[in-house]
Each structure stands twice: as C-alpha cells, then as structure tokens.
Design a protein around this nucleic acid. Structure first.
Lengths: 68, 68
DNA sequence: TTGTGACTTTAAGTCCGTG
DNA sequence: CCACGGACTTAAAGTCACA
C-alpha cells in the first residue's frame, strides 16, 4: 500500500526528469501506457520483473524505485 | 527472470546471515514458507508488497534485495 | 497528455502434503 | 531443514474505449 505509492512517485519523478511523457516512456519500457499510469498512481502492485523493465526504461538501478 | 534470481540469492544470503531457517523467517515476515522457498530459488516473481515484507523481516531497506 | 472502469488471461500467493 | 508438487483462491498482467 505504502511501498506502491513510493514506487509510483519515484517513477513519476524520474520519468519527468527525463522529459518523457507516459506514452513515450511506455514505449521505451515495453509496458502499456495505462499500466504505467496505474503504477504512478500507486493503484498497481508491480512484480519485480515489471520493476526491472521500468528501471531499464529510466536508466536507473531497480532498487532506486523503492527509495523513500 | 534474472532479477528474480538476484532477489532469491540476496534473500537467502541475508536470511542465513541472520541465522534463520526458512520456516522461522516465513513466520517473522508473515509469508508462507513454501513461497519463501520459491522466491529463494528464483521461480517466483514477487510483488513490491512482498518485497517490503521480506525486507522488514530481514531488517534491510527493500532496495537491497535488488542489488547485483 | 493522462485518468479510469471494465474486462480476460496469467500468475501471485496459500495450504495441503512428500522425499 | 529444505526442495518440490498439486490444488486452490486471489490478484497482477495486459489491453481497450472513453472522459
């Protein structure tokens, strides 16, 4: 519940830092746009394989997505 | 696929460092013992909420479980 | 450009057990 | 103490039309 929100905020922050829209990022990471939207809003509970895809798309270590 | 193995190895290493059996750790972290077994062997794809439970049980930040 | 509800398919996660 | 399997319930993965 709480960790999901953290992941979502980290993703959103890092994505915007990269200057990417959700749609652009979705394409880069190979995940559907609406799914990315759900992760950012903390309503999805992604698995580690999804976390890895997101991290690769952002160019950061996967662990960064779990930072406080 | 690869990230799962990493998580499993990290969990196993940290759990053994704590001197805990899978069963003891499963109880501490509130996860079923057979599931812990599967995560350690890399055949499970845990969600971030499970990752958090595991990290709390180990007393480490959740991101540590994703270390290389 | 993003949020949302609804949906089907796949896998997460639990519980019983065995060697 | 652990790997592993079968059967099961719940939730995630993945997609869509529309606001």
């Amino acid at each position: 519940m709480e960790v999901r929100r953290r992941v979502g905020l980290n993703l959103k922050r890092l994505r915007i830092e990269k200057g990417l829209s959700q749609e652009e990022f979705a394409f880069r990471s190979g995940i559907h746009r609406t799914y990315i939207s759900g992760v950012e809003r903390g309503i999805r509970n992604p698995t580690v394989t999804i976390l890895e895809k997101i991290a690769i798309g952002l160019g950061v270590p996967a662990g960064r997505l779990l930072d406080d």
